[in-house]
Write a protein that binds this DNA or RNA. Structure first.
Lengths: 366, 366
DNA sequence: GTGAAAGCGCTAACAT
DNA sequence: ATGTTAGCGCTTTCAC
């Protein structure tokens, strides 16, 4: 049995013909735009259902100029932090009739630009972008397109666009103070790449916390993104510099890599060495030992980004003067578990002793 | 300083005017469709660059009838298996000029249908769908839309559409035979939900392997999807039925949940109890002990799905008679690590002793 | 409350 | 090789 040749999908005209009304009426009924006589509404609905008709959003967008597309561009789809962000954006957006067009910058400026150009050619209502590098190679495209957009997570300099980030310095400080409280003087900071501003801010937070109490800033080891690299760099560092009492890893990959390396070298965590990681995933809870970590407010970031974006989208269509760019900085949480233990008396004053299992930096909006 | 009101993006007409040519020529240059005089090409390119012009894909699609959209619908964006699939699909399609419109069925038939209807209204070139349940609530929409589509991973019955799955029964058999080789007579199978055909197939594979050598089929515990549930069900089972020598968990969530529960109950893995999990993620390698697991060929699945889809897309446009539906079944790999250990002599014949670290089921195409 | 008709930005057939 | 023009399916005036 041979399938019939691909029939074209039904159009509004088909529905109109079947219902015995004009296309304008069909449009008004299906979009619930103008009041239409109840009898006609029923006829139109019946005809549409019979034909399995769905409005062609492409034609709709072209004619109306109103897009129901939100583009999301992230540096990588292999990183659970970004896919978590996407999941949260999807939840926020889907009930408002928007669809997500997704792309990855593959951690590369050139790819980012190319993908962004492709995304923008859909003339989306707005875009959420996590730049692949501090260069933010796609910014000029975004500006040129005059589309509402919000930059999330990786924000290098203070430009005039809406921004949602985490309080990275506060997070670093939070991590450092926890380690100080546990008596760690001799800390190693493991960072993916110091080319990323958010990572540098985390480092700065740690350095600040140590400096505040007169301790030298802990050494920072830049380890890259592949597990092999991470393993090798840490291994070499330990061989050359000796073993610190604790490690703070500044990304989820760095956290995994550090633990993998320490396991391989047969260091016991936390007995031989303490580990404090970044990001909070299920495996960190079930891991043995469970991993003490700084949890980033992924859902809140996504929600805030969408809220801001929607405000801009609605603002534009109602010819509102857009308010000034919004810089939102969300606080992180410390999840105290088993991988970091005390190696001596607290190095903080008594005021640091609010150690009840979770701590939070302030959410700062300015 | 006040921004100027949102200027409309440049159109092809603008570019044509600036370059002193017709819109048709602009179109031909930018789409590289017809040969155009070099001098004009240069002028057009210059004008387009000056205006930062990008073709409006919405208008382009409406007019040409050719879409460069691939829709991807998965049951959940919080599951690394599905996000891994998405990542691989993105890599495959991006270089061919397609963009991905993404949606989640949220493990719910009704949501799946609704999201699919929304996706289809973009009139995509094709869609990749992982059904949320065996009911595959969206299938009729897909059929009605006469759009090329391929069903991935969760496939309940043998319908006439392209399908890419894993050899679930083979995977189950692979897992079971490994445990048998390690001498496990007393096994517990932990499944998320037996409402999913692929899970039932894995169970059947395990049961088959045990039956083949005259052993009773291992008990199967259905634990749901939340960690709390998993923990509670396993805890209760162990209390009531006693401790098996080994656990086989049939999804990544079940694997995590099982390990979490055993950790909480202070069972040592693998000394007190062996664990064999499903899916293969970085945390399983770094975990202590590292987790022996069945790895699914996520990238190969995505690639195969796209290849099939593209063939259909191209086939349709060249008025080819579509070939018969393709059912592709890919083999899984066993990653032998530390979480499953021998508890006695192998229960298999000597032919089962090919234990060199990795095993693979056959890739079957039919 | 309903319909006729214009036109969104582009592509493709046709004319030159 | 280049230009002119119709029209994709819809939304939106504007008549009625």
């Amino acid at each position: 049995m041979r399938k019939t040749a691909a029939t074209k999908p039904a159009t509004m005209k088909d529905v109109a013909a079947r219902a015995g009304v004009s296309v304008a009426t069909v449009s008004n009924v299906l979009a619930d735009r103008k009041p239409v006589d109840a009898a006609l509404v029923a006829k139109v609905r019946a005809a549409a259902a019979a034909l399995g008709y769905q409005v062609d959003r492409v034609a709709s967008q072209l004619r109306s100029g109103r897009a129901r597309i939100v583009c999301v561009l992230v540096p990588s789809l292999d990183n659970p932090f970004f896919t978590g962000l996407i999941a949260a954006i999807e939840r926020a957006v889907r009930d408002e009739g928007y669809d997500i067009v997704l792309a990855s910058g593959h951690d590369d400026d050139a790819v980012e630009r190319a993908r962004l150009a492709a995304l923008l050619s859909w003339r989306p209502a707005g875009v959420v972008v996590v730049p692949s590098t501090d260069a933010f190679a796609g910014r000029d495209l975004l500006e040129g397109a005059r589309v509402p957009y919000v930059v999330v997570d990786r924000v290098a300099d203070d430009v005039g666009s809406d921004v949602v980030t985490v309080d990275n310095e506060g997070a670093g400080r939070l991590a450092a103070r926890h380690m100080l409280e546990l008596g760690h003087r001799n800390l190693l900071v493991v960072a993916s790449s110091l080319d990323l501003a958010n990572i540098r801010e985390r480092v700065a937070g740690i350095a600040g916390a140590y400096a505040e109490i007169g301790l030298p800033r802990p050494p920072v080891l830049e380890v890259g993104l592949s597990f092999e690299e991470i393993d090798e760099r840490i291994d070499r560092y330990l061989a050359a510099q000796g073993t610190p009492t604790g490690v703070v890893a500044l990304t989820n990959f760095a956290t995994m890599g550090a633990i993998a390396c320490l396991n391989r070298l047969d260091f016991a965590v936390p007995d031989d060495i303490s580990v404090l990681g970044f990001d909070d995933y299920a495996w960190m809870r079930i891991s043995k030992p469970s991993i003490t970590a700084i949890a980033q407010p992924v859902d809140a970031m996504a929600l805030a980004a969408w809220e801001r974006l929607r405000a801009r989208i609605d603002g534009v269509s109602s010819s509102d003067t857009p308010s000034h760019p919004d810089r939102l900085k969300l606080g992180c949480r410390l999840e105290i578990r088993q991988s970091a233990r005390a190696v001596g008396p607290s190095l903080l004053g008594a005021d640091g002793a609010d150690d009840v299992g979770r701590k939070q930096t302030h959410a700062v909006q300015r």
